[in-house]
Design a protein around this nucleic acid. Structure first.
Lengths: 235, 235
DNA sequence: GCGGAAGTTTGCGCTGGCGCAACCCATCCC
DNA sequence: GGGATGGGTTGCGCCAGCGCAAACTTCCGC
């Protein structure tokens, strides 16, 4: 079934250094699967039966604490791998993956991983780089949570979302999938109330425009400035 | 040079699945180097010329923000690799590594990495697992910073340090390297003042015993209980 | 078109823990 | 032994942002 447009997939950093032939062999082991909006791809604690490559849509990875709070770890964009627990030697998924938009992903059974890596060692190297850059992102997040105030963190989150999944629209850059105040709160370690207040403020200042689960950055540079250092820089 | 006691090194998860012969070949490319207490192994932003395996001592990895604040990312224990930026495709070190104790490490030049991986692909797989588990730790930290109060985070940090580098002493479990209030503050996203207050409180309650850069956990279970859920659970 | 559910906004009071400042104590070095 | 340096402790005032509560809006299913 995975007669996927391998032309597109071939461009991904994940598959850098593979011939068309090799790529085809790898893709042959995958099937592609649809995930309607708000459906779960997998759930934290599930047996890690598969790993994924997102083709269309957006997937949110979030962790639930023992006390039931949710924390959003990242949003996956098309072209990225996710659910790579098997490659890292984990037996269960450490987070829950939810499609926030109608999504399509390539799905490999976990059992395929050792086989593929044995045959194509560079796959491990590429995955290592992907995981490495995710580690850097996570470190950045720890640093932000340790040293920045809430407003600054929210600014950082929006800048990142816009860069990763921004779409140019009439009035600026729109975040290309439905995202609630609650989601942003769970990305920045605050409450939806505080996020709402902050966004209201920015909207009044003309920095953004927002409605239900939708945010447009009208003045990306100003948001960026807010992210870079809290006080002192507004004109 | 590195006629290191390969018997010891051979036990490490990093080198799982290697024959003595192969291991020797890998070790032959490394030299071992001493780092006296408080010396820097490498500095954030430095050209990533080498990667390391810690043999003795303890190394602190920390990041400095543009505004000059420091955040401690992790403490490296003997047997762990660190400074693996080259393997993740980074040109510069993303953090500063400081020996907090007199330390000894194996040092490979970055140039050796592609060569070694080409010859021993399983090296990439093992590194992927090491980096993967570090990613999990980092995620855990983000979750903690998002959902827990300071006291709980400090408790978590101590529990982790004790597990990772605890040494049994007369009165309990001692953290096996010099660590200041400031360090703990930079691990948990708070100030040394608040850490000092918390530790004072615990000391009065008999949970710990501490002095200059030294902490002994006398009642590990109680600290653990504090870490797991803030209010309601003490016997 | 009419509920109802889900997301958002806003007001208000309270508090965890930060910032500042002063002081104490141990270690090290001359 | 005396000064200096680098931790550590503690008191006090303040405020960012949380928690709670209530109202509003948009969307959706029936």
């Amino acid at each position: 079934m995975a007669t996927v447009d391998s032309s597109l997939v071939a461009e991904l950093p994940m598959f850098a250094g593979f011939s068309g032939e090799e790529l085809a062999e790898i893709l042959r082991e995958a099937r592609s699967s649809r995930y309607p909006r708000n459906s779960e791809v997998f759930s934290q604690g599930d047996d890690a039966h598969s790993f994924f490559l997102l083709l269309h849509g957006h997937v949110r990875a979030s962790k639930t604490t023992p006390t039931g709070e949710q924390v959003v770890m990242r949003y996956v964009s098309p072209g990225e791998i996710f659910g790579v627990a098997p490659a890292m030697g984990l037996k269960q998924y450490p987070a829950t993956a939810t499609a926030v938009d109608d999504s399509v992903a390539l799905v490999w059974p976990s059992a395929a991983w050792p086989r593929l890596v044995a045959k194509f060692p560079v796959l491990a190297t590429n995955t290592l780089q992907a995981v490495g850059s995710r580690l850097q992102e996570s470190f950045t997040r720890v640093v932000e949570m340790s040293t920045e105030q809430v407003e600054q963190r929210v600014a950082h989150a929006l800048v990142r979302l816009a860069r990763q999944s921004g779409r140019q629209v009439e009035r600026g850059t729109e975040i290309d999938f439905p995202i609630s105040r609650q989601d942003i709160a769970q990305m920045t370690g605050t409450t939806l109330h505080t996020v709402s207040r902050i966004l209201s403020g920015w909207e009044q200042a003309g920095l953004i425009e927002s409605s239900r689960q939708r945010i447009v950055l009208c003045e990306p540079e100003k948001i960026h400035a807010l992210a870079e250092q809290a006080s002192g820089d507004d004109d």
